[in-house]
Design a protein around this nucleic acid. Sequence first.
DNA 1: TCCTGTTTTCGCCTATCAATCGAAAACGTG
DNA 2: CACGTTTTCGATTGATAGGCGAAAACAGGA
Lengths: 242, 242
Amino acid sequence: MPGTTPPLGGRHVATGHEVLAAVLQVRDGRLRVLAWQRGIAPDEGRWALPGGHLRDDEDVEESVRRQLAEKVDLSDVAHVEQLGVFSAPHRVPDARIVATAFLGLVPSDADPAVPDDTAWQPVDALPPTAFDHAAIVDDALDRLRAKLSYTNIGFALAPAEFTVSALREIYAGALGHPVSATNLQRVLTRRGQLEPTGAVSPPGPAGGRPAALFRFTRRTLRVTDAFAVLRPPGEVGRAVVP
Amino acid sequence: MPGTTPPLGGRHVATGHEVLAAVLQVRDGRLRVLAWQRGIAPDEGRWALPGGHLRDDEDVEESVRRQLAEKVDLSDVAHVEQLGVFSAPHRVPDARIVATAFLGLVPSDADPAVPDDTAWQPVDALPPTAFDHAAIVDDALDRLRAKLSYTNIGFALAPAEFTVSALREIYAGALGHPVSATNLQRVLTRRGQLEPTGAVSPPGPAGGRPAALFRFTRRTLRVTDAFAVLRPPGEVGRAVVP
DNA sequence: TCCTGTTTTCGCCTATCAATCGAAAACGTG
DNA sequence: CACGTTTTCGATTGATAGGCGAAAACAGGA
């Protein structure tokens, strides 16, 4: 179908495809994104998302996992999904690079070692970012917040076991506004996302009743049931969706 | 950041980026996809999605609109959104072509002229498809059906004005299962998606009460309200989401 | 030991909403 | 003018989200 690479226009000198990942985690109550500070021009000193060139023998999912492994322990990344393509002709200067952006989620109890130039930056107070990476972070935020309401994606932000209070803090941090613990527990339980482990967590230094521990029933993405009107008769639950 | 195009591996002879669109429409009660029959190898005779090479001076959205315009009247396409990247190394033979796939939606009353090699194929009985285009159609179906339940995306499948019965037929065709007209009307009205125009439609040949005409209140994508638990206090509605 | 402060859990109440059913309205046909 | 057809509307039932407050379970200090 297609021929060879189209001729470069204007001042383009390089062509290619890269992958980029906005890896999010709730740390001390704030939603943060993994970023590294560029040491060379262009955009020296600015903060960039992890990523790099797509190789010829891998698809974009393999590529983003390979490149993420250079910054964090991949086993700490609980969920990865494609956000979309960023392809404005001059999104990086002096080159024609199309980027596939990803959303990655890390449970709040994970603390992977990161390189010296890499840090968790708060999404509501991002330092100056490189290229169009701020727009990618925005898309990641929108996607996460939307999916928190109609999928079980919270499993990727929460530890394997947690108290309702801890989960409330995670949701509040991710959504950026206060969340009712009582209602959160009831809604997620009713949706079949949450189940008690049976164990309890010891109370904090200030005392208080020991909190029951919960876990997510599934640790793979699943969208919440739609209304019966729009659902094939007799079915419950649905497959994975972007 | 990136250098030049990485060396081609194996038997790859061409590199590039293409866009592809799965354009869906409900015709005579069935969901169909716009496809054209390839006249040349590879995959000669098989049915392919509209699309083509990404140019150097356009982003993928501009590109898909440009290429779609070669097959149908663009003004009939009520909604276009990105599905994702298809990038398996050998998804097309003897070349390394990464594809950005799109979902397009055409209202059921539109009947755009199409080229001779192009036709609306039923998605539940697709003829043999070229390359990985069947997988793209599957993704488009999943995306559409999921969004019908938590967004107002139905506006892009429905005419400007319609009866509840006509809307029921559209939803049933798109979802692939029967839908209750009464419940559909009530649910969509309650969500603020539907409003009566005041006019009525003349009854069919068999008589019957004239049906009231309705329209969608918004003709841009909007996700349905989440539960108050997960919503910033006082807000209603939310922004656009993939 | 008892009291106080803290944190979590549970139950109750209310309002809202989905789903279903059935009756009535509005039309064409014989 | 009666009958079949199609749509619309109202009433009822059942389920669930949201909010509030009481009770349970713990630590620490008097």
